[in-house]
Write a protein that binds this DNA or RNA. Structure first.
Lengths: 247, 247
DNA sequence: AGCCTTTACGTCAACAAGACGATTAGCTAG
DNA sequence: CTAGCTAATCGTCTTGTTGACGTAAAGGCT
């Protein structure tokens, strides 16, 4: 390890990719966006949307670009945060490829379409991936596990739940987010009280929505708060297990 | 963006480094470990310990290796977690270098020594870095900010505070961790009650330590819990800025 | 034996949270 | 029109947690 000045060429042979775990709630299930790979390696297999970071590109713009290219998901309103980086030496057969994983949360969107490097993009229930029923390319199963864990944790002490909802939503829609992501059931009345007491979590729009049945629900918009105080504590809820913990 | 099969050489010109934010509590202050760079670029400037990931190395082993090489900090007991990856295209003058930042927490250790690529390693109060009194190379200021934020958050809902303490410690030492890292003062009696009620946070050793003065303090060891329930809530404490060193 | 210091335990009031009853506001069936 | 259905919202009660703060215990020192 001699101290040399200037670039050290022996270290500059790596590639960096981004992979995005896009979560949404569809049909009362937590679902993840997968693409069918159109190129080798793992051609035809299911994988997370993602791709190489360009030579002059930062990681987050690359994640948004890949989402747009492969899944036509591009809306500015998409919540996107970095998850963590996976750098195991043999994780990619093409060579030394390090991937920066991102977590994205989307409201229930129209079925996405395929794009350049992906033949098709589709939503898949998270349990089917975590249980091993659906196999993913590379180490993407581990990335999904990590992303789902992160989302579950962040519901507790941030206002992330609103990212699963459209711009205006009802109290019940918001409560379903917690119930579906955590796999528990929550008392609607206590939830209503708690959420309306948390400062800056929700802003009432004044409007109400008339469903097919039942009393019309007030509509809310997300408030300016990004952290939730007091937090929603999972530990307090009865331990209702969800079918998961795969592989 | 044509779909080609096999490796795509145009993407394989990058280097990946690790940088580690090592935090500890010394002299009742939160301090960060810095090295004086012994090589270009930024030779002589202060920076986080770190370096290139080897061609067949994963990121976390690289972080431990660099810590050992540059600062002789190597003990297996060191808490280490990945923070996030910084990938701005121009963040390193040597070329396209993406860095995976790690957060390490250490108990009050002997003053570390320099190593291969670092002329010297030393502890620096975090406030002196965050305030700009001490300038860091690259984008390392941003990495320190991110790491300190993470540590502050994790004290709330995990048992991370014990990572700042030696293997056995007193209740007061643990409380000082919260007070110093958060910059608040905490009622010793309520803290004692809360911490002893949290399941698996602490295990009494049965021993006690006799200080110069005052009643002997019971000694504890960290328990098996990794998450803290109920959490310690910062928002609940009065916004008491603690009289902190200088600045 | 007093005195000081620090740790440990106790009490009380305010408040948050779980359980669950009751009311409200829309619809639809008769 | 009214009864009945459903879902949303509000209220009550009880339990547990928290912040404020009083008090006792256990050392050393003079």
């Amino acid at each position: 390890m001699a101290a040399v000045s200037g670039p050290q060429p022996q270290f500059f042979g790596m590639a960096v990719t981004v992979d995005v775990v896009v979560l949404t709630i569809r049909d009362d299930e937590l679902q993840v966006l997968l693409v069918e790979r159109g190129v080798e390696p793992f051609r035809g297999a299911l994988a997370l949307p993602g791709g190489f970071i360009g030579p002059d590109e930062d990681a987050e713009p690359a994640a948004r670009r890949e989402l747009a290219e492969e899944t036509a998901l591009d809306r500015g309103g998409l919540y996107l945060e970095q998850l963590r980086t996976f750098a195991a030496p043999a994780r990619d057969p093409r060579g030394r490829v390090v991937t920066v994983a991102y977590l994205a949360i989307a409201p229930d969107l129209p079925v996405p379409v395929g794009g350049s490097d992906a033949r098709a993009a589709r939503w898949q229930p998270v349990w089917s991936v975590l249980s091993g029923h659906v196999k993913l390319a590379f180490d993407h199963l581990g990335i999904v596990e990590y992303g789902v864990d992160r989302a579950r944790s962040k519901l507790e002490y941030t206002t992330l739940a609103t990212a699963f909802c459209p711009e205006v939503f009802t109290m019940t829609e918001l409560r379903r987010v917690y119930e579906v992501v955590w796999g528990v059931s929550i008392d609607a009345r206590n939830f209503h009280r708690k959420v309306t007491n948390a400062a800056d979590f929700l802003e009432p729009t004044g409007e109400r929505r008339v469903l097919e049945t039942g009393r019309p629900a007030a509509l809310y918009r997300r408030g300016p708060a990004r952290t939730l105080f007091p937090p929603m504590l999972r530990g307090a809820f009865p331990p209702v297990p969800l079918a998961d913990s795969g592989a």
